Computed example of a mutant assay.
Amino acid sequence: MRLVIIGGGILGTAHALAAIGRGHEVVQLEREQEARGATVRNFGLVWVSGRSEGELELALRSRLLWEEIGGKVPGIGFRPAGSMTLACTPEELAVAEAAAAGPSAEARGFTVLDPDEVRAVNPALRGKFLAGLHCANDAAVESRQALPALRNYLTASGRYTFHSGAEARAVTDTEAGVTVRDDHGRTFDADMALVCPGAAHTGLVRELAGVLPVRRVRLQMMQTAPLGEPLTTAIADGDSFRYYPGFAGPELDVLNREQAQTQTAAAHKMQLLCVQRLHGGLTIGDTHEYTEPFAFDVDTAPYEHLTSVTEELLGRTLPPIVRRWAGVYSQSVDPDAIVTRAKADRHVWVVTGPGGRGMTLGPAIGEETADLLNL
């Protein structure tokens, strides 16, 4: 088959990867010169640990696919580094212990470690904490390197063409297939079009599929200069338990009832996630904002909070902050929906709304879509 994929982010590229892997031809259009949305504004984490029971199988499948892709495409920087969620209070420790005793703990790779055991795994953690929930199955990729590396790999197949700076303006469905017209006046004929618009829910997407059951979520993150030592796992704080459905249960209810977040963390719906990039710097975040219109600028208070929490866990001063940014991702409003797929016409589908899970679940979502559409 011939496919046109509109959107050059991780979701669109994952669908291209699935299609090329099944022997099809793909033309991919990206309106920017390079993807600039949530795909490159994230942690690069392949985050199995906090996934709900309903999405765990898909997350584990995606983790396996990322490892396979990393073996073929070293440029994506795949690292099976795992993660450490650090508990600093008895209430947080109770959540960690419940997770490690849960029915899916082995599949997730959960183990609760005491401080000495934590430091044996990640010597950079010299700060104050009671224990760490180690997740051996979490991993990382270099989000700003992954897409160019994947496109080079796809191009080598001889069945893939990428057009940057090409905005799709019209998709015409016919009995035989589709014709996509871009803003250069070019037309691309195909058997099927997949639209993976990220957080762009208006314009062509609305014309094709109407108002979708998705919302936009804004976050703030930052990047440090090189740390000067390895951070061998990704790290998270106890507040992260509040934001991942995999930790739901009576212990989390107690945590939410008896241990309030700080005023800044609560106001910005914050958790600490931190991962080291290959160049040695740390990507640190993040906040959650759900009500539009979003501000065009960033707030200082969340960055100060994240810096303080990270320094407390590391037991040292952070290197200088060299970059700060905000990002917006698309999230399905149904909490049980991993992604929103909308059939816009006979041969046109819109796929969006993984809700901050695009990097983690992208390869498996692409594979699942290919199965559903009999590609």
Rank of each mutant, 00 (worst) to 15 (best):
V121N: 06
S332R: 11
R218F: 06
A337M: 03
F129L: 04
K269I: 09
N122I: 01
L219V: 13
G246F: 02
A199W: 05
C88T: 15
E312G: 14
H184F: 08
R215T: 14
A266N: 07
T283M: 03
P197M: 01
Y153C: 09
R126C: 00
R216P: 03
E312H: 13
M221W: 01
W349R: 04
K343I: 08
V4Y: 00
E32M: 13
L273M: 10
V121A: 11
F43L: 12
D345G: 15
L272C: 13
P302Y: 09
S52M: 07
N256P: 03
Q223P: 00
D239H: 12
L45M: 15
V4R: 06
Q261H: 08
V254E: 13
M222D: 08
Q261A: 14
R61F: 01
R41C: 04
Q223H: 15
G23S: 09
L11S: 07
I76W: 04
L272A: 08
Q259P: 02
Y303L: 15
Y303A: 09
L318C: 06
S52Q: 03
G198T: 04
G44T: 05
Y290H: 12
T155A: 15
E175I: 04
T283L: 11
D114C: 13
D191Y: 08
Q145M: 13
R2T: 10
R324E: 06
A176E: 13
R215P: 04
L60C: 12
E289V: 09
M359D: 01
E25S: 12
H184C: 10
